[in-house]
Design a protein around this nucleic acid. Sequence first.
DNA 1: ATGTAATTGAGAATTAATCTCGATAATAAC
DNA 2: GTTATTATCGAGATTAATTCTCAATTACAT
Lengths: 150, 150
Amino acid sequence: MTSELQIFQDYIRQRGLRRTPEREEILREIFEVHGHFDVDGLYLQLKGKGSKVSKASIYRALPLFIDCGLIREVDFSDGHWHYEHIYGHADHNHLRCLGCGEIQEFEEPTLQLLEEQLAHKYHYQIKGHQLQVYGYCTACRLKDWGRQGV
Amino acid sequence: MTSELQIFQDYIRQRGLRRTPEREEILREIFEVHGHFDVDGLYLQLKGKGSKVSKASIYRALPLFIDCGLIREVDFSDGHWHYEHIYGHADHNHLRCLGCGEIQEFEEPTLQLLEEQLAHKYHYQIKGHQLQVYGYCTACRLKDWGRQGV
DNA sequence: ATGTAATTGAGAATTAATCTCGATAATAAC
DNA sequence: GTTATTATCGAGATTAATTCTCAATTACAT
Ligand SMILES: [Mn+2]
Ligand SMILES: [Mn+2]
Ligand SMILES: [Zn+2]
Ligand SMILES: [Zn+2]
């Protein structure tokens, strides 16, 4: 059993929840795919492989995966949530092009320090952070030079 | 005329748009209120003062204010967008309690440097960033100690 | 094997945001 | 000032992501 599945089963048992094939299918698919995903894409992917899991089950499973630290929500400001698995991956943030939607990932280790400072200053137990930086990539800047401030 | 209104009128003229009392009312209300707001709250506030502006007009005006740098979207991950005016305010980020929703604002000037580094490294024209840090405040931690990892 | 209660799928409900459309009114040209 | 043009308005319909409902199923404990 892959260790993400193991982590999830431990979480399930600890909470008195139930192990179901649907939840396993969804989790497996998430960790087979690299990169970001959204509910609709994940649903279609599973469906394409012959799976019968419903969208409702996906919507119900994702909060569990988030809660046990396997995935996280990612905000691309396009009207719905995206997600990515984080277990086994280096912490990173996203630089997004407002023109074409391209995503560049980058690491910024100093944010870990920031979390610790904030925890101390405001007496918070920090669970995580999200940083989105946005702007225009070279291609979009050239394409769209009518906009001011190019 | 307040300078935020001036900035908006300049923007309007430059774009060949029209000056309307509705847009002015909305902008005025945004800058009279301190703190964060959402569409529904802003609408009710205006209504309470006898204004006749519709929600549709608010939804249409906000992107204009964002575009000319007077306000920005703020993500509190509660299902809809929040906003805050930024003109005349120090750049800041948000620390949010996952229990009670309390927001702490904090400044982190090094993010400006990060923007410059990213602009250079990825050849982006950076327009801004959003950083949310989230966790549990002292009160919620005490209240809810059943959660693991307190 | 049996009882229980968590989980499922399908579709209805909710709700933020956008769109449509006829009426209104801001601006420019005369 | 009058007129023409067309951006903007309000009201309500529409869209789309997410949540909810409920009867049927099934995981798990006994
Ligand atoms: Mn990523
Ligand atoms: Mn703020
Ligand atoms: Zn681009
Ligand atoms: Zn709290």
